[in-house]
Design a protein around this nucleic acid. Structure first.
Lengths: 362, 362
DNA sequence: TTTGAACCTACAAACGGTTGCATTTTCCTC
DNA sequence: GAGGAAAATGCAACCGTTTGTAGGTTCAAA
């Protein structure tokens, strides 16, 4: 590969002059010299070596991206991370930055932190890190530009971008309550993710505010997967008093709920209302189409990338979490609760009973 | 940030010795010296600079990944590329390689090629490049390790990994034919992608071999998207003689077909059989579940990454395309053609007529 | 005590750029 | 033609490593 010296020799000038021309440097260069150099570059197929430039300029033009590695060493590219990634790539690409996946699994600050000091990236973007990890506090000590996406919402000591899940969950639960549902179940997301924690907390709060009890049997754990959603929903729908509505922590869990409902011949939405969070394409593939909380992932990813690039360029950025508002997308998966009980339950009294009965169960 | 010299000074040794210790170098080092150095490294939080190492060793431990940028400057992370990416990341991660997205749009060999000479990556993985682009031939001239995923299948002059779409399509069409379908429509994928081209070609061949004509009205273009599938399917289903089966070039197109069918009250599979390609999760979200060709993307991505890493490590790799076999996953979206015509059509004769009529149309 | 082998360690030259400063050239002006 | 400012270019140090070679220890055997 041709180096800057090859070009310089070819033109009979020094490497400094070539560098100056290549970078449209501060010093004026005689037009004929410039032309000669540009031609030599073309002829020799010269392109500056990124690593040498990185060394000299102390700037890599690369950002590192880390996808929250929840209790596994595997990076997971799901619909969520793909959406964020896409948005980040578009912003980074426009500004001439590369995006590198950090593939090394996080094994705790002591062991993993030093690898981030290797000067490979100008900054890091951490997406949905586990809340019980020491990752973010540790990374902050490096004093390298850092932006978190969807970290614990009440953590304010880092530059972060997130969706106002708290508000979104309120909207969803209010929707179900206003339809008349009282026996509402929740299938939670991964316990180590901030989003799941918020959704569960706000769910409970809203129910409490509405004076509707939430028996333990109606809150089941899952890991943001269809399979887990299926298992949980099956359990819920086979309860002596099944819920009339299920709040699934994300679309994929909802897909599992649909599966279980179909298997148990529970009709959505007449027998069971379903709401979820994310509004990934799959919510439209499901039949009936899923009522879900639209999460503006593209905005989140773009803004996160912008905040990171600003920091890298030396622009001061406010040290707080920036929130985007989600929106409820009403589709076809919710309805008023069916007063006729499903065959699996007592055929008298129906949900009316369920509600009354439900209250003291708490 | 601490450098190797800081460590060396701290211990009163030379940088060479530190380097030797850090890399478990070839030269023996006295145990107490080693211990002293390791402690200093710990104390100073030293980590070797990746760029300096890259310069000195002429090895970046990074692979570049390019997602086929079809007629747009935007990188698209869809279900397909996400699956490949995930597989690549897992292999690369295990072997200590980083993965960088090449964000610069490809503007032709003349303009874009030199950027790949910047020494940032040890090799490149190109996923589903457009068939009408000069990208691959140009990249090959660089003599940098290169692996293509899903390039034009009949191109044999590069190391490539692909799925035997030809065989897969045969299986799908045979399935439809053996069910008794004769009026089979095809909604094609993006015209600039090899996968789409193969699927259409083999579709036509198989139909020809079976002696079943394929009128032009039954082959409609789409761009591997739900929306395009919806538009095309609507057109097909409103034909005077609608098809009894649709071969969608991928799952997302099939999702559009489902949408159109639901809107037009066409029942799947009794009125219309649908088959597609990919077997992404969405094929199970659809109702009825989609019969589709399972594409082993994880194997493809992993193998592609392995071939690339082998080349980088200097192992000779055969200069050909390696194929993986797809498998038909029979689910619920196909059935024998319904002899009773849909209301939109003549109620006498039904598909029998359609077949007979269809023949001379060719 | 010398000697040679076996070990360690340091020096310095890359790797391919950038950049402040010094130097040369060019072009005016008097 | 001399003088000087401005413009153009060159020199050399530096970015943080690796690595070949040379030099310095240590130690046992002679």
């Amino acid at each position: 590969m041709a180096t800057i010296y090859d070009v310089a020799k070819e033109c009979g000038v020094s490497s400094a002059t070539v560098s100056n021309v290549v970078n449209n440097g501060p010093k004026p260069v005689r037009p004929e010299t410039r032309k000669k150099i540009l031609e030599a570059i073309e002829r020799l197929n010269y392109h500056p070596n990124a690593f040498a430039q990185g060394l000299a300029k102390q700037k890599t033009h690369t950002i590192g991206i880390l996808f929250g590695v929840v209790d596994s060493a595997e990076i997971v590219i799901n619909a969520y991370s793909a959406a964020i990634l896409q948005a980040v790539l578009s912003v980074a690409g426009c500004q001439g930055y590369n995006v590198t996946h950090i593939t090394a699994p996080w094994k705790g600050a002591k062991e993993s932190l030093s690898a981030f000091r290797n000067g490979r990236c100008d900054g890091y973007l951490v997406v949905a890190p586990p809340t019980d990890s020491d990752m973010i506090p540790a990374l902050r000590t490096l004093e390298i530009p850092l932006v978190t996406v969807s970290w614990l919402p009440d953590q304010r000591d880092a530059v972060g971008v997130d969706i106002d899940d708290s508000h979104g969950t309120e909207l969803l639960i209010d929707h179900l309550l206003s339809l008349g549902h009282r026996r509402i179940a929740h299938i939670t997301g991964h316990p180590n993710l901030g989003s799941a924690q918020v959704r569960e907390r706000v769910f409970r709060t809203q129910m409490l505010l509405a004076g509707v009890p939430v028996p333990n049997e109606l809150v089941l754990p899952a890991h943001y997967s269809q399979h887990d959603g299926y298992i949980a929903a099956k359990q819920l729908l086979q309860l002596p008093e099944p819920p009339t509505a299920i709040f699934a922590a994300n679309d994929e869990i909802a897909a599992g709920v649909y599966e279980a409902a179909r298997e148990l011949k529970v009709n959505i939405p007449t027998d069971l209302s379903v709401v979820a969070v994310d509004d990934r394409p799959l919510s439209q593939y499901l039949s009936p189409k899923l009522t879900t909380l639209h999460q503006p992932f593209d905005q989140v990813g773009q803004y996160a990338a912008q905040l990171l690039l600003q920091q890298i360029e030396g622009i001061e950025v406010e040290n707080k979490t920036h929130y985007f508002k989600p929106e409820v997308v009403l589709r076809e998966s919710t309805a008023t609760p069916n007063p006729i009980l499903r065959p699996t339950s007592d055929s008298n009294g129906g949900n009316q009973n369920a509600i009354k009965h439900g209250s003291p169960t708490q």
